[in-house]
């Protein structure tokens, strides 16, 4: 767990909430990239699988002061005492020390859902149904990502298929490091308003690193001490206040 602090790269995101329009393209791109099966007919918003979920949050005011912010919530890639890692009984959740990415190994997962209970961001999803693709749509599956079976937990891993592809490309070119532009998760790439900035937080020359330290940038639930690597940015004061509030306060 503590290894991540000394890791070479620390991939993270800064999401500009003021740019997000709540269109949901990132959710679709994510599902397509990571072979998330179309929702079962009986699935609800609480049983469906979406590694990335956009929550609309209103400021509660009436017209004309009403304002709504859209919060894309994904695995926060906690960098310190990652809650889901220590609880897994069989090492199915691991933090990659070289990237800081919290990985889920579905083949090893027992489906006990203890990690889901542990995650304060509700970023983990369970396969309540067998994944099924309508006849003919199997050809659209991403060959770089293994689909998950029923009865295991899954979550965002910053598109590890793309990370592997970038590594392969670097190796082919004789480079040890991947080029920054070669590794971009699907949600980042697809966002029409370019609300998400992705990169290595450890690299101080990086835009994501700079933005993560900028004014009006915040994290969700920082007091838990889990050091999430997803940062949010908003110039609106009510959004930042809302994010700082205790639930039900």
């Amino acid at each position: 767990m503590e290894q991540t602090a000394q890791s070479k790269s620390r991939y993270g995101m800064v999401i500009d909430l003021d740019r997000c329009t709540g269109c949901g393209v990132c959710m679709v791109a994510c599902a397509v990239e990571n072979n998330v099966a179309p929702a079962e007919q009986k699935a609800t918003e609480r049983t469906g699988v979406t590694w990335l979920r956009v929550y609309p949050v209103s400021n509660g005011e009436g017209f004309p002061a009403n304002d709504t912010v859209f919060i894309p919530m994904t695995c926060q890639q906690c960098g310190n005492h990652t809650p889901c890692v220590s609880v897994c009984p069989q090492n199915a959740v691991e933090v990659d020390p070289s990237t800081g990415i919290v990985g889920q190994i579905p083949q090893r997962c027992l489906g006990c859902r203890y990690c889901m209970t542990a995650c304060p961001y509700h970023a983990r999803y369970f396969d309540w149904w067998d994944p099924q693709w309508p006849e003919g749509t199997e050809v659209l599956l991403n060959p770089d990502v293994a689909p998950r079976m029923r009865g295991v937990a899954e979550k965002c891993n910053f598109c590890h298929g793309r990370l592997h592809a970038a590594r392969t490309k670097a190796a082919a070119a004789g480079r040890k490091e991947i080029a920054a532009g070669d590794y971009v998760p699907a949600c980042v790439e697809s966002c029409p308003s370019r609300a998400i900035v992705f990169g290595d937080l450890a690299d101080e020359t990086n835009e994501v690193s700079r933005l993560s330290h900028s004014i009006n940038t915040f994290q969700f639930l920082p007091k838990l001490g889990t050091a999430p690597k997803i940062f949010y940015h908003s110039a609106k004061e009510w959004v930042r206040k809302m994010a700082d509030r205790a639930p039900l306060a």
Binding site: M73, L221, P247, L248
Partner: peptide, 8 residues
């Protein structure tokens, strides 16, 4: 009990 500030 919710954990995220905007949850119920």
């Amino acid at each position: 009990l919710p954990t995220l500030p905007f949850d119920q």
